[in-house]
Design a protein around this nucleic acid. Structure first.
Length: 434
RNA sequence: GUGGAUGUAGUUCAAUGGUAGAGCGCCAGAUUGUGGUUCUGGUUGUUGCGGGUUCAAGUCCCGUCAUCCACCCCA
């Protein structure tokens, strides 16, 4: 009896065109991170459940994959890259130079229900600066986000930034900090539900007066600095948190395209461990897919594992969600070409010659593959085109004797006849985009 | 996890409870060294899976798996 091939809900196979695209995005991101001096690390997929979940083991929210291994250990698959990183820093802080800037691109697992751009196995691209509470680090993370998306050549990206503490100050100023969780949840739905309903819900939670002010706080409009001034006045005047935001906002004026980074006081949630600035990033036209890069500052992350404080700031790009968003926008970038050149097989007797040709092309930086069977040329051309290989080399007995090759541009069906290898190389290099 | 929609050939879609079909694609040939046209012939199914009702189920019922949507949460 054969087993039906199938895969788990929320887990996926990737066909070559999709995987080529993913790898290309990752390559660009790695280059981008490295250009800022971030260095790569990796950690195990599987960890002690206690390490990932804390002593309490409250995995209810995270929907963690958790089980006992063969040795009876209570283990779990990592559900993000930040918590393992905290454990990593607690274990290796003496081997690392602080401040430490790392990036980490790998898969994480959450047993939550699936949706477009939401899977149970997905890839996160984390980048963090730890060991400093400098505003410079906060600023650099924002700059890293905008630079990464610029490197990916994705237009219409906006980074929404806020500060955990400033909304808390507002709540304290109106003595409603006890309802902060409910208020945050309500406020988060503003764009989805509308002002009217949000106001009503807030009124039942607080008072009509506070509800009005909350809405004014959340809906503050204008430039970065104008919004900040509004927030300060509603939260009881300037404070260290607003000062941080002001510094970041001022610096960004000359660092990024205007309108790329928006002060958005409704960005108040995020993971529990954020204590300072928080960010979410949206694709214009695909806001429904959610944030494609979120993060913030955490000042007590390592406290779970160590007495010493380890402040940090970082963010994470959701690669799969980003790809789903780009697909929705019809903006999937990059080519999925398997190679630059197909060396066609005209005559099986010349097999060795074709591979020698291939080796010489590869030595010159050209990706090429040799077609393995002497089939009709039309068939070999169609094969190349399906794999998005733009060029084909044709060499039969005649050309082999003359020491020449023919080069065909598949898209235009244009032929370059009787070329020496050097001439062919020159034309190939001229035709390839890089 | 809760609620809802969907699931038919490689793909896009048909089929009043009564023989599972069409376009596109794919394969072969006309065309043995150059594939976009044309013509001829050919190919494709455990109707997601498992039960049930019925003389008869792609169609109705139940379960299950998967996808999508909303909630929740988040990347």
């Amino acid at each position: 009896m054969e087993i039906t091939p199938r895969i788990l809900k929320g887990f996926r196979d990737f066909l070559p065109p999709a995987e080529i695209r993913r790898k290309e995005l990752v390559r660009i991101l790695e280059d981008s991170f490295r250009s800022f001096g971030f260095v790569p690390i990796d950690t195990p997929l599987l960890e002690y459940a206690e390490v990932l979940l804390g002593k309490g083991g409250g995995e209810t929210d995270k929907q963690v994959y958790r089980f006992n291994d063969h040795g009876g250990r209570d283990v779990a698959l990592r559900f993000d890259l930040t918590v393992p990183f905290a454990r990593y820093m607690a274990m290796h802080r003496n081997e690392l130079n602080l401040p430490f800037k790392r990036f980490h691109i790998n898969k994480v697992f959450r047993g939550e229900n699936t949706q477009r751009g939401r899977y149970r196995e997905f890839t996160q691209c984390d980048f963090d600066i730890v060991g400093t509470d400098s505003v410079s680090a906060d600023l650099e993370i924002v700059l890293m986000i905008t630079s990464a998306f610029a490197a990916l050549q994705i237009p219409g990206v906006t980074v929404h930034i806020s500060h955990r503490g400033i909304f808390n100050r507002f709540l304290q100023a109106h003595q409603v900090q006890d309802q902060s969780v409910e208020i945050l949840r309500t406020v988060d739905k503003l764009r989805k539900v509308g002002e009217e309903e949000t106001l009503q819900t807030l009124q039942t939670l607080t008072s009509p007066e506070v509800a009005e002010k909350t809405l004014a706080f959340i809906g503050a409009s204008g430039s970065f600095q104008e919004i900040l001034t509004t927030l300060e006045s509603l939260a009881g005047g300037p404070c260290p948190e607003s000062q941080t935001l002001r510094e970041i906002g001022t610096a960004l004026e000359t660092l990024v395209t205007p309108g790329t980074v928006i002060l958005d006081p409704s960005i108040t949630r995020g993971l529990d461990y954020y204590t300072g600035v928080v960010f979410e990033t949206f694709l214009k036209g695909a806001e429904g897919i959610g944030s494609v890069c979120s993060g913030g500052r955490y000042d007590d992350l390592v406290s779970l594992y160590s007495k010493e404080a380890m402040p940090g700031v970082g963010a994470s790009i959701g690669l799969d969600r980003l790809l789903a968003g780009l697909e929705e926008l019809g903006q999937l970038p990059g080519t999925t070409a398997a190679a630059d050149v197909l060396i066609t097989m005209q005559d099986a007797a010349l097999t060795a010659h074709y591979h020698e040709l291939g080796q010489r092309l590869r030595a010159r930086g050209i990706r090429c593959e040799v077609y393995p069977e002497a089939q009709k040329l039309g068939r070999q051309f169609a094969f190349a085109e399906r794999k998005e290989i733009p060029l084909a080399l044709v060499c039969g007995l005649r050309e082999h004797q003359d020491g020449t090759v023919n080069l065909r541009v598949l898209e235009t069906r244009e032929n370059h006849q009787d070329l020496t290898e050097e001439q062919a190389l020159e034309i190939i290099h001229g035709l390839l985009p890089r």
